[in-house]
Computed example of a mutant assay.
Amino acid sequence: MKPTLLILAAGMASRYGSMKQIDGFGPNGETIIDYSIHDAIKAGFGKISFIIREEFLDSFKSIFEPKLKGRGVEVDYVFQNFDLTPFGIDKEIERAKPWGTAHAVLAARNQINEPFCVINADDYYGYDSFEKMAKFLTTEADDTHYALVGYQIDRTLSDHGSVSRGVCEVNALGNMTEVNERTEVYFKEDGSVAYKDTTGEHPLPNETRVSMNFWGFTPAVFQQSEPMFREFVMANEENPKAEFFIPLVADKLIKTGTASFKVIPTGSKWFGVTYKEDKEIVQKSISELVANGVYPANLWN
């Protein structure tokens, strides 16, 4: 059974100022999602599922369905909303934004019956990552063995300031033992990497692996994470900014011995867009990939 690509695209993009999920970055207006889908199809994925807000549906259909018609992949849509009754929670909780990435994954629980991977809509991951994840999902994944792609930290940083990164601790078996969120990671003048916290500056080896939200699961994760979500909602009903993130689920599955997470190393360079100022950098990065023959100038021709 071919795996599914689940794309997290329901974000409100408040810091970007418009719908960055469908903004054009390629030479012919290609979105970042276009490049992820192109790489996923090439790697052997059989279905593309978009997690979106329902009001985005017409836009997504008009942009992506003409491109994907006849390409041998199924396309469907999952709506992330504020309705908690499907999770057995009979109360309305006032919120301005959805409940986070792990809640978005749970929204797909009735539409995915095969191994799948989860990515962000506004991040570029590189073909190597999709190829390795497809192999894992079709040959290794089971209901207690999941994965994430681990990016080399110096291939995810910005030349324009510090960033936050989830730094993976990996054991001798190649499995993640925990993810530590480092909120101020940056290049030093000599090209080495460091992070700062309340105790000062600390070096990080350039080959340190970080999570960029590229996860691989089987459908068992829905049943495993749903009780966690109910507990999270009850504990955070008075906190409108609390979000149920995928690393929270992964951490609990690891610590309870329910599942392991293989860290799949990749040499791909990651880049993404958070602020409007990032657009020019992303456009330049894609132009370089096209110039180097990684992608054709017109991706879908």
Rank of each mutant, 00 (worst) to 15 (best):
V193Q: 07
A194I: 03
Y195F: 12
D197P: 11
T198S: 12
T198M: 13
T198F: 10
T199P: 10
T199A: 14
T199F: 12
T199R: 14
E201F: 06
E201C: 11
P203A: 10
P203Y: 10
P205R: 14
P205G: 12
N206E: 13
N206C: 15
N206A: 15
E207K: 15
T208C: 14
T208F: 15
R209V: 11
R209S: 15
R209I: 13
R209Q: 15
V210W: 05
S211P: 13
S211Q: 12
N213Q: 15
N213G: 14
N213C: 15
N213A: 15
F214V: 08
F214I: 06
F214A: 12
F214K: 06
F214C: 12
W215F: 15
G216E: 11
F217Y: 12
F217G: 03
F217W: 10
F217M: 07
F217T: 04
T218D: 06
T218V: 12
T218H: 06
P219F: 14
P219V: 14
P219K: 11
P219W: 14
P219S: 15
P219A: 14
A220D: 11
A220F: 14
V221L: 09
F222Y: 09
F222P: 11
F222L: 09
Q224W: 13
Q224D: 11
S225M: 13
E226P: 07
M228E: 04
M228F: 08
F229C: 00
R230C: 10
R230E: 06
E231Q: 13
F232P: 03
V233Q: 04
M234R: 14
M234C: 12
M234T: 13
M234A: 14
A235I: 01
A235N: 04
A235V: 01
N236H: 12
N236P: 10
E237R: 04
E237K: 03
E238A: 10
E238F: 08
N239A: 06
P240D: 02
K241Y: 09
K241H: 06
A242W: 02
A242S: 12
E243A: 09
F244D: 00
F244H: 02
F245I: 08
F245R: 08
I246Q: 01
I246W: 01
P247L: 04
P247C: 02
L248M: 06
A250V: 09
K252Y: 02
K252E: 02
L253P: 00
L253A: 01
L253G: 00
I254Q: 01
I254L: 02
I254D: 02
K255F: 03
K255N: 11
T256H: 03
T256G: 03
G257N: 07
A259W: 00
F261E: 01
F261D: 00
F261M: 03
F261R: 02
V263G: 05
V263L: 08
I264P: 08
I264S: 06
P265W: 02
P265K: 04
S268L: 03
K269A: 06
K269T: 09
W270S: 04
W270E: 04
W270Y: 09
W270N: 08
W270M: 03
F271I: 08
F271K: 05
F271W: 09
F271T: 08
G272R: 04
G272S: 10
V273R: 04
V273D: 05
T274D: 14
T274Q: 13
Y275V: 13
Y275C: 15
K276N: 15
